[in-house]
């Protein structure tokens, strides 16, 4: 089947999509956007997190056909000019090791910070709850917490 939807602001189309394919597969293998990651393909790790009409979801659990006509934002769409604040904070805080969980965490963290607009800031428990759907096997999460705290704090700079 043919599937057409908007990814990171651009309309994209894929042909000959097998009906059992996930949105994740279409993004990665058909649209040249492998940033969303294929760690578990069962909704248990969050590494494929994308926004679907603004809402963070696991792209592995969205059937490709369900994305028809919708708006998808992937990690590739987070920083339109250079790195976004949350991307920069992940680099600066040492929150990236192997990096396989990073794209999904960034989309989830981006959403989390949106729900705590400056000058509010998420507490550590809020961060933990907000990121509880994203597994990381390398960092022990401490530097990820640092990164989100840093990104939250930096929103105040120059404001």
């Amino acid at each position: 089947m043919r599937v057409t939807f908007t990814v990171n602001g651009r309309e994209q189309q894929a042909d000959d999509v097998w009906e059992g394919e996930s949105l994740l597969y279409v993004l990665r293998e058909r649209m040249g956007l492998p940033g969303s990651k294929n760690a578990c393909e069962q909704g248990e790790c969050g590494s494929c997190t994308v926004r679907l009409d603004g809402v963070p979801v696991c792209a592995c659990l969205v059937a490709a056909g369900q994305a028809e006509g919708r708006e998808v934002v992937t990690v590739e769409g987070l920083g339109q000019e250079g790195l976004s604040a949350v991307q920069q904070a992940f680099v600066d805080a040492g929150a990236v090791q192997c990096g396989f969980c990073t794209p999904g965490l960034l989309v989830a963290a981006d959403d989390l910070l949106e729900r705590f607009p400056w000058p509010t800031a998420p507490s550590d428990d809020d961060i933990r709850e907000g990121l509880s759907g994203n597994l990381c096997r390398c960092t022990g999460y401490e530097k990820i917490l640092d990164a989100v705290r840093l990104a939250a704090a930096r929103r105040g700079e120059g404001a």
């Binding site: 990665r28 492998p34 992937t74 992940f90 990096g99 990073t102 794209p103």
Partner: peptide, 16 residues
């Protein structure tokens, strides 16, 4: 780090 946060870093499952 930058490639890993932008999604451009090519993991072994990303190859084409």
């Amino acid at each position: 780090g930058t490639l890993k946060v932008t999604g451009e870093f090519a993991y072994s499952s990303d190859l084409w």
